[in-house]
């Protein structure tokens, strides 16, 4: 039976992990490669690197991090941030990413999703959606790291990018991100039920129950979290045991 995936996410800024740096003192928690090794050893199901600077100069740093991680961690690796053209996707795959997440560029030019999926296969094209509630039952997507409103309906958009070839959706609730108050379950369920590809729930995890809710109530295929793992509060194994106790199939 297929298992629900738990995915720690590392936000990388100028080559350093930006969350939780001062809270973990076992290893240099600011070094993304070290963090990746720790999560690999803990049995994370995948890893996600999001380059939040995404400037031109930062690309080489990101490539270097992905190269080093991929040569040491034999697990699936999703990389995103600043992916604008097919060439960016190719470069990330070449240095060792297994999947590439496209966010703003997919909104501004939908054809990029089709081109990338045709070139490299849907299985490696993840579309990252940042959504915000407009009114109950209605969510709209934002771009440029949550700074630009588009007015585009999140459910319509999700259906559209899947039809273009996206193989997975990384769905972040901007209302919940950083609040530790749990996923936006209504949003997660609305998108998960609207599309046939796997959906990764993201944004707002503060407790292990939140992870469980994302799957049972949100219908997500995978759950992503950053701070509960970076801060050393919970280990991946604790999260998996908690989900298994709730009746969710996980890889332990």
């Amino acid at each position: 039976m297929l298992k629900v995936r738990i995915i720690p996410c590392l936000d990388v800024d100028k080559g350093r992990v930006v969350k939780g740096i001062s809270f973990v003192n076992l290893v240099d928690a600011g070094d993304p490669v070290e963090q990746a090794r720790r999560y690999d050893a803990e049995g994370a199901d995948e890893l996600c690197f999001l380059d939040i600077t995404a400037s031109h100069e930062a690309r080489d740093t990101l490539y270097d991090i992905v190269t080093k991680t991929a040569s040491q961690c034999f697990m699936p690796l999703t990389v995103g941030g600043g992916v604008r053209k097919v060439e960016d996707v190719r470069n990330l795959l070449l240095v060792g990413a297994d999947k590439v997440a496209i966010n703003t560029a997919a909104v501004t030019r939908r054809e990029l999703v089709r081109e990338a999926a045709e070139k490299f296969g849907s299985q490696c094209i993840v579309v990252a959606i940042d959504a915000k509630q407009a009114r109950p039952g209605k969510w709209v997507i934002w771009t440029h790291g949550g700074r630009t409103a588009t007015g585009i309906d999140a459910i319509d958009y999700a259906r559209e990018i899947v039809a273009l070839g996206a193989g997975e959706i990384l769905l972040t609730s901007m209302d919940r991100d950083g609040t530790r108050s749990g996923f936006d379950l209504a949003l997660t369920r609305a998108i998960s039920d609207a599309v046939s590809v796997p959906v990764i729930a993201s944004g707002g995890v503060g407790t292990l129950d939140h992870l469980t809710q994302g799957v049972i109530e949100g219908h997500a295929s995978a759950v992503l979290a950053a701070s509960i793992f970076h801060f050393g509060e919970f280990s991946i194994q604790q999260a998996k045991r908690h989900m298994a106790d709730a009746g969710i199939a996980v890889r332990v």
């Binding site: 039976m1 297929l2 995936r5 299985q123 193989g167 796997p198 295929s221």
Partner: peptide
């Protein structure tokens, strides 16, 4: 083949690609 297209329970064969850790 997608299993039961009416059932949207995750992980039971409805979502394609088959993506993740399986036994």
């Amino acid at each position: 083949e997608r299993s039961d297209p009416q059932s949207k329970i995750p992980l039971m064969g409805w979502r394609i690609p088959h993506m993740g850790w399986n036994t």
